[in-house]
């Protein structure tokens, strides 16, 4: 018998104006999150739907739609699930198990992955998981990935080891997170093997709460899949467009943010995403106010630091003003 005993429903409406040098965009968005849990089952649904003008487009994004059943310590899950393998806030080298971040998505919202997984929860210090990544579109055996992931927590240290196979690539790696002198330090490394070659990816960083109100985070991302400077320059403007993925086009990136909050009602944050060799990226500032009950007002300014991939962003300055109401 499946008995649902804990139900969680959350919805919010956002209304956002985006100002650039030449245009004003309007963005209306509704987010819905539903979760029902019992001792032996759970269901989660998270979706976003919205409207963007100009272009006057309506969109629907299903981030989570997953059913889980528990029996004897085993948890079976099927559906679309938000996966966040890796301990970095912005970057992860395990891109197959985590949607890549957009530097322009300040709320770090990401769509999920289609999965089938079985995990065993009855070992206190370890969680073994067998997982199959199912393709988004037409089922093709070539695009299916499957394997195991072991997650450990012991003596204050978190670690995880994925080993995932697809038809042509073996994805492996490791990640670790621990506290040291009041800092939380994390390090993720991927080693993807294909046709006799390894491709490496790494995220190394830390976060730290300073006093009661400051929060600091910084992380370095090494992306061997990205272009080196000479490779980028040799491609030329037309060819490089195929490789454009802001924040992922090159090999080295540093993401940093510092946040100050007061009594959970207001805050100010500074953030940056920089390619240190290309000296390009973006910097931004965000002001938030939760003064009014069940609402959040956010004002952000993003300045593009032009150079190579960031030359393709048509605007230098962006101002975003959002009012979000939670029901």
């Amino acid at each position: 018998m499946i008995l649902l005993f804990f139900c969680f429903f959350k919805t919010s409406f956002g209304s956002e104006l985006i100002f650039t040098e030449e245009n004003i965009f309007y963005h209306l968005e509704n987010r819905i999150h539903i979760q029902e849990k019992s001792d032996n089952s759970s269901f989660a649904l998270s979706l976003r739907t919205g409207f963007i003008s100009p272009t006057d487009t309506i969109y629907l994004s299903i981030d989570r739609a997953v059913v889980s059943l528990n029996h004897g310590g085993y948890e079976f899950s099927l559906g679309r699930e938000s996966l966040f393998w890796g301990y970095g806030m912005f970057y992860s080298p395990f891109s197959y198990a985590r949607s890549s971040m957009s530097p322009f998505d300040e709320e770090l919202l990401r769509s999920g992955k289609n999965i089938l997984s079985v995990r065993y929860n009855n070992i206190s210090y370890m969680t073994p998981e067998f997982i199959v990544f199912l393709p988004d579109d037409i089922p093709e055996i070539d695009s299916v990935k499957a394997g195991i992931r072991l997650t450990f927590f012991s003596a204050g240290v978190e670690t995880h080891f994925p080993l995932i196979f697809s038809r042509d690539v073996v994805y492996t790696g490791l990640g670790v997170r621990f506290s040291l002198f009041g800092f939380t330090v994390f390090s993720d490394h991927s080693f993807d093997y294909s046709s006799g070659d390894f491709t490496l990816g790494s995220t190394v960083g830390f976060n730290k709460t300073i006093g009661s109100n400051f929060y600091l985070q910084s992380e370095y991302f090494y992306n061997q899949m990205g272009l080196m400077t000479n490779e980028y320059d040799a491609l030329g403007e037309t060819a490089v467009i195929e490789y454009l993925h802001w924040g992922y086009t090159g090999r080295h990136y540093i993401y940093s943010m510092v946040q100050w909050t007061k009594d959970k009602t207001s805050g100010i944050g500074l953030f940056s995403l920089i390619h240190p060799q290309w000296k390009s990226g973006l910097v931004g500032i965000t002001l938030t106010s939760a003064y009014f009950d069940n609402s959040l007002i956010t004002l952000s300014y993003i300045r593009i630091l032009k150079g190579r991939e960031f030359d393709f962003i048509p605007y230098d300055n962006n101002i975003l003003l959002e009012f979000r109401y939670y029901l």
């Binding site: 959350k10 999150h33 938000s82 966040f84 806030m89 709320e107 770090l108 919202l109 990401r110 978190e158 997170r177 506290s179 009041g182 939380t184 976060n207 709460t209 009661s212």
Partner: peptide, 14 residues
């Protein structure tokens, strides 16, 4: 939930 990740904090934080 808005970030989708778990952050590790200090026990002394407010």
């Amino acid at each position: 939930p808005e970030v989708g990740k778990s952050l590790r904090l200090s026990a002394r934080d407010k």
